[in-house]
Write a protein that binds this DNA or RNA. Structure first.
Lengths: 134, 134
DNA sequence: AGGCTGTATTGACATCCTTCAATGTCGAGC
DNA sequence: GCTCGACATTGAAGGATGTCAATACAGCCT
């Protein structure tokens, strides 16, 4: 009778961001979040993302990205695909070339998830002596 | 393909945190950052981290974490080790038990890295043809 | 000391990930 | 239509990662 099980990951109101630091994640949220962090967990993809995000004009052509890496073109394309599947970047083909740009909603959401609320008092590590076993 | 380097927008790095979204990361920074994101790129570790971070009192005993997972005790211990090596949590043995707590400096730094500076006007990703990425 | 409990480490195995060569697809231009 | 250039996809090889059983280690308690 309680309908508050699903639709937890849905893009609702400010509740859109699961609270990583203030409440335990359920398995579904953790799975979805892990996909995005996994996409960020590679130095090549981080460099690609930073190149795309810092580009004046907001867009980068693949042909401007590839020569910065000691990787084959298919490998760079593969990494771009993973970033796209994680919702971190968008892309569009224009003529012969394909352009990529940052999707700031995703990085904003991650930043929010990793931001500890101000009201949360962090106690010193070594303090509690009285066990609070669950 | 122009051989020019990617144009950088925004101010230089403050020095403390690599600027993921405003300047291209160099390989060294990308490598270091990727390690932390890789530690976050697993649903088990995300749940562990959220359990530790959201714990009132700031600390959690391993014996309170393990029963929440369908995993063997060594596996949970392994994930905790990776979170610790990434600088996300700290730990201390007290008697028989080992306690873990969040190291907020690391999550704060990640949040800062993922936060787009306010002065940065992001052009709209795409006006027309906002079709989903193929 | 000896046994017991909680946690970490080791070794092995299955799975996933990164990478490249080869090939396919899309669009432009002759 | 045909060819060429830019980018994506496929398939395979090697390395990294997640997991468990077995074992080791560190403190308590008789």
């Amino acid at each position: 009778m309680s309908k508050q099980e699903l639709e937890v990951v849905g893009p609702d109101v400010e509740g859109c961001c699961p609270a990583l630091l203030t409440a335990p994640l359920d398995e579904e949220q953790a799975e979805a979040l892990a996909k995005v962090f996994k996409a960020l967990g590679d130095p090549i993809r981080l460099r690609l993302l930073s190149m795309i995000a810092s580009r004046a004009g907001g867009e980068v052509c693949v042909c401007d990205l590839t020569p910065h890496f000691d990787l084959s073109q298919p490998t760079v394309s593969h990494h771009l695909k993973l970033l796209r599947q994680a919702g971190l970047i968008g892309c569009e083909r224009r003529g012969t070339w394909v352009y990529y740009w940052l999707l700031p909603e995703t990085t904003d959401q991650l930043a929010g998830i990793l931001t500890r609320p101000a009201g949360q008092p962090l106690p010193e590590p070594v303090d509690v002596a009285s066990g609070a076993a669950s």
